[in-house]
């Protein structure tokens, strides 16, 4: 699973349906704990991400896989070993499932060409983060019963966001209307060609939307001069109760985490149990990753 772009609606629906069943199993504590018994899952994280790594780790363990975490600080990548050397090593270890997070776009695609294991992209540069989009879609679907014909506003640093790209592909594929909202300096070139509407004003961008998805603003963007200051950003693009009033009265708020409170989102909104889905997103993350591991290991399991 490298990217959402190119996936068809039935594939996405099937994945969400399976994830839905894992949500129920997880809640009832009746997970089938031996589905991946004897399989090895390696978490290969070239960028720190405690929550995504933990989510994959938990998903793998709940299905009975042997899970190994390889962080960049503990690997030989710092000693000049290339990504493909690492791939060769992991191949020799007969890994079944390989979860990769990397700072460069296309890193997961490159790795997938060189290893036998099923590769799951857990975020590559500013390209895609497919399991995040799936978990977001599952979260929305469980609350609203559908994705089709909903209006979703994705707000903030779209330019540097793999979460935004994967969500745009998934939501437009499933028939949702997608808006992107943010300052022009944080909008990718020709982003409208991805099938979205572009807004530079939060109030207009949020008008009558069903879902507000906030993106994380990384601090280094400020040093590159794309945004003059945090207070200016929060004033115009931070989500607070006042701006949220322009959305539908029952509009829901999402954030992939970790949040910069007071930069892109106000705590009052983030912590409002009536509006915020942020905790639920985390729960759905484990279920979605279990579904992905289940589907990607099917061929290997059939061959046994």
């Amino acid at each position: 699973m490298l990217q959402i772009e190119g996936m068809y609606p039935p594939q996405i629906t099937a994945m969400l349906d399976l994830a839905e069943s894992y949500v129920l199993l997880n809640r009832s504590g009746k997970t089938q704990r031996d589905l991946l018994r004897g399989r090895t899952l390696i978490n290969l994280f070239f960028e720190d991400s405690t929550r995504t790594r933990t989510s994959f780790e938990l998903a793998g363990k709940r299905l009975g896989a042997d899970v190994v975490n390889m962080g960049v600080s503990t690997s030989s990548v710092n000693k000049g070993e290339t990504l493909l050397d690492t791939a060769g090593t992991l191949n020799a270890m007969q890994t079944d499932l390989l979860v990769i997070r990397h700072g460069e776009s296309g890193a997961a695609n490159l790795l997938a060409q060189k290893v036998d294991a099923a590769v799951i992209n857990a975020g590559d540069g500013t390209h895609e983060h497919p399991t995040q989009a799936l978990l977001d879609a599952l979260t929305i679907r469980r609350r609203r019963g559908r994705l089709e014909a909903l209006t979703v506003a994705i707000c903030g640093d779209v330019l540097h966001s793999r979460v935004a790209r994967s969500n745009i592909h998934l939501l437009t594929t499933m028939g949702a209307r997608v808006r992107v909202v943010g300052p022009p300096t944080l909008m990718p070139s020709e982003v409208a060609r991805l099938g979205v509407e572009v807004f530079h004003d939060m109030k207009r961008g949020l008008a009558d939307v069903d879902i507000v998805m906030m993106l994380r603003l990384q601090r280094e963007r400020m040093t590159r001069g794309l945004v003059p200051s945090e207070r200016e950003y929060f004033r115009f693009f931070g989500l607070d109760a006042e701006k949220l009033r322009h959305a539908k009265p029952d509009a829901l708020v999402m954030h992939p985490g970790p949040m910069n409170r007071g930069v892109e989102i106000d705590s009052a909104v983030a912590d409002d149990p009536a509006r915020s889905l942020i905790r639920e997103q985390v729960e759905m993350g484990v279920a979605v990753r279990m579904a992905v591991l289940d589907i990607l290991s099917r061929r290997a399991r059939r061959n046994d």
Binding site: G106, T126, H127, E128, R162, R165, S189, R193, L194
Partner: peptide, 15 residues
């Protein structure tokens, strides 16, 4: 080259 393709691939663009 900056544009739709670079945006889809998440690659830093040059106008």
């Amino acid at each position: 080259t900056e544009g739709e393709l670079a945006t889809r691939l998440g690659l830093p663009g040059i106008p």
